[in-house]
Simulated assay, not measured.
Amino acid sequence: MSPILMMKMEMFNLKENAIWIGGLNIDQLPHILILEKVWTHIWSCKTLSKIKSFLWRACAQCLASGEGLLSRHVSVDPSCLRCGVAVETVDHLLLECLFALASWFGSSIAFLVPASRPLKLYEFLSSWDSLFSQEQRKATETLGMCSFLYWFLWIARNDLVFRKKIWTPSEMFQSAQRAFSKFWAASSPHNQSSYEAPTALSPPSSWTRPPIGSVKINCNIALPTDFQVGGLGIIIQDCQGA
């Protein structure tokens, strides 16, 4: 058991001493206490130490996002600099913004963030229990790849804020995949990563038909540099191209 959990609460006068995490009262963050498996996934994740620290700070709402700075009484516009519509929370930056959605879907993971309700980072991490119970190695590698995508989403955001450099989603997820592939090869020399980044996004020269009795779905997404409006195209065809 954690030494912190073994402490007797009567040692502290909770009425007189506020407990804060990332500048927020801990009563406002019950998931920080309840979901211990989130921290387990973070600290056991096969990734760089700095990315583990980043994920911990992201879940604890300690990042200097627009919302985070405003909560610390820093006079800033908390709106997302990319979409300009939503407040730049950590979850919006990493999972909800159009740039993040395009990056996750375009990556080799091809993760489609649910649109039914906002997805929280700690919920995403806690949901990995089922995958770990089925295929340990694949889950370990995939969670490591996800950690690099989160990290590069943060890098791309900071480049936009401080250097006015605009990354495209493809540049972001290809950079993340290349960095992860190098890390995975160095840490697992006998195992090649399943998430190798392509050298370039080059579509096939001709359409290949699916097997008889199946359909093939081709899709593409287009986003302007200001990410105000985007487009998604989907084509469904059978083996005869109909």
Rank of each mutant, 00 (worst) to 15 (best):
residue 1 M to W: 15
residue 2 S to Q: 15
residue 3 P to I: 11
residue 4 I to G: 06
residue 9 M to G: 15
residue 9 M to S: 15
residue 11 M to G: 10
residue 13 N to R: 15
residue 13 N to D: 15
residue 19 I to Y: 05
residue 20 W to Y: 14
residue 21 I to V: 13
residue 25 N to F: 14
residue 27 D to K: 14
residue 33 L to C: 14
residue 37 K to D: 15
residue 40 T to M: 02
residue 45 C to R: 10
residue 50 K to I: 00
residue 53 S to M: 05
residue 54 F to L: 01
residue 54 F to T: 01
residue 55 L to V: 02
residue 57 R to T: 04
residue 58 A to I: 05
residue 62 C to P: 07
residue 63 L to M: 06
residue 64 A to F: 08
residue 66 G to C: 06
residue 66 G to K: 06
residue 74 V to K: 05
residue 74 V to G: 00
residue 75 S to T: 11
residue 76 V to E: 13
residue 78 P to A: 05
residue 81 L to C: 06
residue 82 R to Q: 07
residue 84 G to R: 05
residue 88 E to C: 11
residue 90 V to Q: 14
residue 91 D to H: 09
residue 93 L to T: 07
residue 98 L to T: 09
residue 103 S to T: 12
residue 106 G to M: 04
residue 109 I to V: 14
residue 114 P to S: 08
residue 116 S to K: 12
residue 117 R to P: 06
residue 120 K to P: 02
residue 121 L to K: 07
residue 122 Y to I: 06
residue 124 F to A: 10
residue 126 S to A: 13
residue 134 Q to P: 00
residue 134 Q to A: 15
residue 135 E to M: 03
residue 137 R to K: 04
residue 137 R to D: 11
residue 138 K to F: 11
residue 140 T to G: 01
residue 141 E to L: 07
residue 142 T to E: 14
residue 142 T to D: 09
residue 143 L to W: 00
residue 144 G to A: 03
residue 144 G to M: 02
residue 146 C to L: 09
residue 148 F to S: 07
residue 152 F to R: 03
residue 155 I to G: 02
residue 161 V to A: 12
residue 162 F to H: 10
residue 164 K to F: 10
residue 166 I to P: 02
residue 166 I to D: 01
residue 170 S to H: 01
residue 171 E to Y: 01
residue 174 Q to W: 03
residue 175 S to F: 01
residue 178 R to T: 10
residue 181 S to H: 02
residue 190 H to T: 11
residue 192 Q to F: 09
residue 200 A to V: 09
residue 200 A to N: 05
residue 202 S to H: 13
residue 202 S to L: 15
residue 203 P to S: 08
residue 204 P to S: 13
residue 207 W to C: 12
residue 208 T to C: 04
residue 213 G to Y: 13
residue 219 C to A: 15
residue 221 I to A: 12
residue 221 I to L: 12
residue 222 A to G: 14
residue 222 A to N: 09
residue 225 T to N: 07
residue 225 T to E: 10
residue 225 T to K: 15
residue 226 D to C: 07
residue 226 D to A: 05
residue 231 G to P: 07
residue 234 I to W: 10
residue 236 I to P: 00
residue 237 Q to N: 02
residue 237 Q to L: 06
residue 238 D to C: 02
